[in-house]
């Protein structure tokens, strides 16, 4: 790990000032992606702005018909939250299957969403639920936020403050974890929302998380695993690696989609 200056601001405004005054600064949330990357020297920020002290970034709340989760809320806090369980039980399940207990005690929703790992779980949940990402500057719809592998709509100096999920009629998530890393080999999130059925796939797509329009159309006709029985997924759009080739991933998308509905 290369040397860096360390800052622990108490407010989002102070964190934003620190970012603005140092173009090579990086935000630190749970550190469970950033610190390993820094150890490998794949990232070498000159300054670290630690969000750990910022109380306004934490917490879970139900506001009208929306579930609102602060960026610094850990996976374990989401998984264990009675508010999340009663509003969108399946979202607690998404958090509960991330990594292992120790990872869930540190990793945060904001860090996961900002990182947009193509095998991460939250991006699929946000996309299927039509969530809105609120930063210190603006609000961004999930449909406009995830821009491909490890790429998002976030601009320099932008800090995710909270994520807002409209409560759906139905939501489910099924994940086939990579047995070694626990990340999704394929994960499918399905939701019946005010704006129709939405299906998002993680772990599989060459360009990261994506919406599966054929699955959405099929489930729009009838919300059941059977409705997805003829579903096909284009293997040309799938990742292929030592863990699973493209054809296998394409097959797993159908299997996981049916499990997510059931």
């Amino acid at each position: 790990m290369y040397a860096f200056q360390y800052h622990r601001p108490q407010s989002v405004a102070d964190a934003a000032k620190l970012l603005a005054s140092n173009s090579e600064a990086k935000l630190l949330a749970g550190g469970h992606t950033l610190l390993p990357t820094m150890k490998q020297r794949l990232a070498a920020p000159k300054a670290i702005v630690d969000l750990a002290r910022i109380a306004e970034l934490k917490g879970i709340d139900k506001k009208g018909n929306a579930l609102v989760i602060g960026a610094m809320t850990t996976h374990a806090e989401v998984a264990d939250s009675a508010i999340v369980r009663s509003a969108i039980a399946g979202l607690a399940e998404v958090a509960a299957v991330i990594g292992d207990p120790h990872v869930r005690h540190r990793g945060t929703i904001g860090g996961s969403v900002a990182n947009n790992d193509p095998a991460a779980d939250y991006p699929a949940a946000l996309l299927a639920l039509g969530a809105t990402i609120a930063t210190n500057k603006r609000e961004i719809k999930a449909d406009d936020f995830f821009k491909g592998l490890f790429t998002t709509a976030l601009q320099d100096g932008e800090i995710i403050a909270r994520i807002s999920f409209p409560v759906p009629a139905k939501f489910g998530y099924a994940k086939f974890p990579n047995p070694a890393s626990r990340y999704a080999l394929v994960g499918v999130a399905v939701a019946q929302t005010g704006s129709g059925v939405r299906v998002a796939v993680t772990g599989a797509g060459k360009d990261g998380v994506f919406r599966h329009t054929a699955a959405e159309a099929a489930l729009g006709k009838g919300w059941s695993a059977q409705a997805l029985s003829g579903l096909t997924t284009d293997a040309n759009l799938m990742m292929s690696d030592i863990h699973a080739d493209a054809a296998y991933r394409a097959h797993l998308v159908g299997v996981m989609a049916r499990r997510a509905v059931a």
Binding site: R8, L28, G31, H32, L35, D50, H102
Partner: peptide, 16 residues
């Protein structure tokens, strides 16, 4: 245990 919760101490800054 970090504030009562199990954590991987190789992946946490002491400063945090």
């Amino acid at each position: 245990h970090l504030d009562g919760r199990a954590a991987k101490s190789c992946t946490v800054l002491a400063a945090t």
